[in-house]
C-alpha cells in the first residue's frame, strides 16, 4: 500500500540523529515487546507479512511519532485481536487497570 511507511526519497525529515552509547533497550518494556513479538510469531499467530501490514496501516501521525516498539505493540495487539485471542476491550480494560494502579 502507498502508506506512510514508504519514506524512501522523501524530503523534510531533518538530520539523522545518532545516540552515542545507545543501550540495547531504552526501557524494560521494549525487551518484553521484542520477546512477545517473537513468541506470538512462533505460536503461529502471524507471519512476517501479517506482522508488517498493520504497521503500514497505522494513522500516519502515530506512525511518524511512535517508536519502533510502539509500532510492534500496535501490530501484535491487532493480530491477536484478529486471531480471536483477545479483544480490544480486554486490552483497554487491563491497560486502564494498570494505569489506575500506578496512579494510586
Amino acid at each position: 500500500m502507498n502508506g506512510i511507511h514508504d519514506v524512501g526519497g522523501k524530503h523534510g525529515f531533518g538530520p539523522v540523529l545518532v545516540e552515542q552509547n545507545e543501550p540495547y533497550f531504552h526501557e524494560e518494556w521494549e525487551g518484553r515487546m521484542l520477546s512477545m513479538m517473537i513468541a506470538c510469531f512462533a505460536a503461529g499467530i502471524y507471519n512476517v507479512d501479517q506482522f508488517r501490514h498493520p504497521i503500514e496501516k497505522m494513522d500516519p501521525r502515530h506512525y511518524l511519532m511512535s517508536s519502533y516498539y510502539e509500532k510492534w505493540l500496535c501490530t501484535v495487539e491487532q493480530n491477536c485481536i484478529d486471531a480471536g485471542i483477545v479483544t480490544r476491550e480486554e486490552v483497554d480494560a487491563r491497560h486502564a487497570q494498570l494505569m489506575k494502579g500506578k496512579a494510586a
Binding site: W29, M36, L73, V76, V91, L98, K102
Partner: peptide, 9 residues
C-alpha cells in the same frame, strides 16, 4: 503509558 499497555497485553 505504552509500557503498561505492553504489560496488559
Amino acid at each position: 503509558e505504552v509500557g503498561l499497555r505492553v504489560k496488559a497485553l
